[in-house]
């Protein structure tokens, strides 16, 4: 395909158009991804999540610059929520990244969640693959850590960083917030604020309680991203985690699990769409619903019957 050839030949416009095709589910999206797949698997993927206002975009901007200093090219997928009321969105991550625009070694893409639960992680994953195939050494996926689908996106990363800030509540918040469990490293941003030491202790205590961290103890870094303080140490920690994953063989395991998750999600998606179209939208199904409502039949045998027909 022309667009794939151009993308592989480093056309930024082709990369952008390919991401749009995936995002909007254009007819050629599957063909693009099929042709691109052999060229993926080379980029190192970093997920960044944390509460709104933690400074994720600013931190991403600074991390990208640090990676550029170290000679790496960087792709960024920045995800912001869609308004559930209007379907519109304000994608404001780029505002922190405008001085990256002059750098050919960086490509930033904003994505709206568009309310497609699950579907978003697939689209974001495809955007990562396209940047990977384009030749980016590092791809950063940045998203607000509030919902399951956002967590799913970040979980697909090789290294996941959770950004927190002091003054967000007491230690119970740190224990209950589900996103804290997924961090391979923690960054306390705005660390010039009061409460940083206390937050640091709280995260340490939470990590003590978590039995999963065998072999890798998530480091806690402190940054003031707006002033560029502490950024090098964060990149060092990411690189240390990468080295750990490679040496321990964990990277291959993580990537295998990722492929399994991706294919499972694609299968579910395909089956869901098939059922929506071929079963749920039919008149025959409506008739069954009415019969169930009148208690002439019950749903369990209906489901058995339909599944028997669909998955023969």
């Amino acid at each position: 395909m022309e667009i794939v050839d151009k993308l592989l030949a480093h056309s930024r416009l082709a990369l952008s158009k390919a991401i749009t095709a995936v995002e909007n589910e254009y007819d050629d999206a599957v063909k693009i991804m099929t042709e691109i797949y052999p060229h993926t698997g080379n980029a190192y993927v970093i997920g960044i999540t944390g509460p709104p206002g933690a400074g994720k975009s600013t931190l991403t901007d600074k991390l990208a610059k640090e990676y550029r200093k170290r000679g790496k090219t960087v792709g960024i997928v920045a995800i912001d929520p869609t308004s559930p009321y209007s379907g519109g969105a304000i994608l404001g991550d780029r505002i922190r990244m405008m001085d990256l625009m002059a750098d050919e070694g960086i490509f930033v893409r904003s994505m709206a969640t568009r309310g497609s639960l699950g579907g978003l992680s697939q689209k974001a994953g495809d955007a990562v693959k396209l940047m990977d195939a384009f030749g980016m050494d590092v791809v950063i996926v940045e998203t607000v850590g509030v919902g399951q689908s956002e967590v799913d996106i970040v979980k697909t990363a090789d290294t996941t960083m959770v950004v927190v800030i002091p003054g967000m509540g007491d230690d119970i918040q740190a224990i209950k917030a589900g996103v804290l469990e997924i961090g391979d490293l923690f960054t306390i941003n705005k660390a010039d604020r009061e409460g940083t030491d206390k937050l640091n202790i709280e995260i340490e205590m939470m990590l003590e309680l978590n039995p999963e961290h065998v072999g890798w103890r998530p480091p806690i870094n402190r940054t003031v991203a707006s002033k560029g303080e502490g950024i090098e140490a964060v990149v060092d920690s990411i690189e240390a985690h990468k080295a750990y994953l490679i040496d321990s063989g964990r990277l291959a395991e993580i990537r295998k699990a990722r492929i399994k998750n991706e294919v499972t999600a694609m299968l579910n998606d395909r089956v869901n769409r098939y059922i929506d179209k071929e079963v749920v939208s039919t008149d025959a199904f409506d008739e069954l619903v009415v019969k169930m409502q009148n208690r002439e039949i019950e749903p369990y045998s209906v489901v058995d019957d339909i599944v028997g027909k669909v998955l023969k």
């Binding site: 994608l91 404001g92 405008m98 001085d99 625009m101 002059a102 930033v108 709206a112």
Partner: peptide
Amino acid sequence: EVIYTGIRLTPEQIAEAALQD
């Protein structure tokens, strides 16, 4: 879907952001 890019930008920054998004 609005990509808000803020103030004091060069035409080059704006055009590149338009391309990437």
